[in-house]
Write a protein that binds this DNA or RNA. Structure first.
Length: 319
DNA sequence: TCTGGGGTCCTAGGACCC
DNA sequence: TCTGGGGTCCTAGGACCC
């Protein structure tokens, strides 16, 4: 399942669930085909619409943004209503808006009144409205961290906030522990970034049936080459080239391995990617059947960057 | 009952350099 | 005669997000 309506969610269906399990939970549900083309179009429409009100927008995904509305006129609630109105006008879709002093709390707020909700929050609301929530609701605390916290007797954000920062740093490491403490106290200084450069691009596919490197050699080779071609097309379309080529394999036992190789020069064409990826593949024990392969390019550079921008090389060494 | 695809960031060890 | 203290880059894996 890619997603589910709120009616289906009430029956326990959620994204990532196998179709047969969803069918058992919601036997009367209507299964619709996915159309990422359609979603991308609406994504563009809703982001463009938002920009007419607040140009300072950070793209998070296909259906999510942060907006810095510090300098906008009007009360928070009225701004939220305007944002929702332009989105509905452009797409016919409802959305939920959270307004808070920082991104961490805004994200938390936006989840509090779904669907079609508005939540306005300030620091004073922390003890009454945030602290009772499960720690897992913090963006960045996933299943593993939540389980770890649970084993330490911490279920809610409030219980996390009550713990000593130094103790958290001992349990979770300096950086993560300190972040957990700050997050539980609603502290977050990250700015709203309106532009970011991609770090990597990849293509991967899960097979209809598991494939074996020897028995299904031809089929596997064809899929591998096609992924490289698609990746090369993505790079070309977006205007990037990369120096590190990597592969990802998932075996029939769900174990995942990656291998990568950094080249001397950036590449963007399918042949070069395929060749480097082939070298990576040779470094993996392929006795088990595969369920997924993927190809990735990282260490990206803008392709066709102006040559004049290249610095003059010189060396200086102290005597 | 098997578990998608496309990303980001972090950690940690080893190679290598000054 | 194995001995310091920084630093960067490369590689592999893992947590997490939409």
């Amino acid at each position: 399942m890619t997603t589910a309506t709120y009616e289906a969610r009430a029956l326990g269906v959620h994204s990532g669930m196998p179709a047969m399990k969803a069918a058992r939970l919601a036997p009367d549900a209507v299964l619709l085909p996915v159309s990422f083309e359609l979603y991308r179009r609406h994504s563009r429409l809703f982001k463009d619409a938002l920009r007419t009100i607040s140009p300072h927008i950070q793209d998070i995904g296909i259906d999510e943004v942060y907006a810095d509305i510090t300098l906008l006129d009007g009360a928070s609630h009225a701004i939220a209503q305007r944002l929702k109105a332009v989105v509905f006008e452009a797409t016919g879709l409802t959305c939920s808006v959270g307004i808070a002093p920082n991104k961490l709390l805004a994200k938390l707020s936006s989840d509090m009144q779904k669907p079609d909700g508005i939540t306005v929050l300030d620091m004073a609301d922390l003890p009454s409205r945030i602290w009772p929530l499960p720690a897992r609701r913090i963006n960045g605390i996933g299943p593993k961290a939540a389980a770890r916290l649970e084993s330490l007797g911490i279920s809610t954000i409030g219980e996390l906030a009550a713990r000593d920062k130094v103790w958290l740093m001992e349990q979770f490491g300096r950086s993560h522990g300190s972040w957990l403490h700050d997050a539980a106290h609603g502290r977050d200084e990250r700015p709203v970034l309106t532009h970011s450069e991609p770090v990597s691009m990849s293509r991967e596919t899960t097979f209809e049936r598991n494939l074996h490197s020897v028995r299904d050699r031809t089929e596997l080779g064809g899929i591998f080459t096609r992924l490289c071609e698609q990746l090369a097309a993505d790079l070309r379309r977006k205007g990037y080239a990369g120096r590190t080529i990597g592969i990802k394999l998932r075996f029939d036992d769900f174990r995942t391995v990656t291998r990568d190789l950094t080249l001397h020069e950036v590449v963007a064409d399918a042949t070069a990617i395929r060749q480097a990826a082939g070298l990576c593949l040779k470094r993996v024990d392929l006795r088990r059947a595969l369920r997924l392969i993927g190809v990735r390019v990282s260490a990206l550079e803008r392709a066709g960057a102006p040559v004049s921008a290249q610095a003059q090389q010189s060396a200086l060494d102290f005597d």
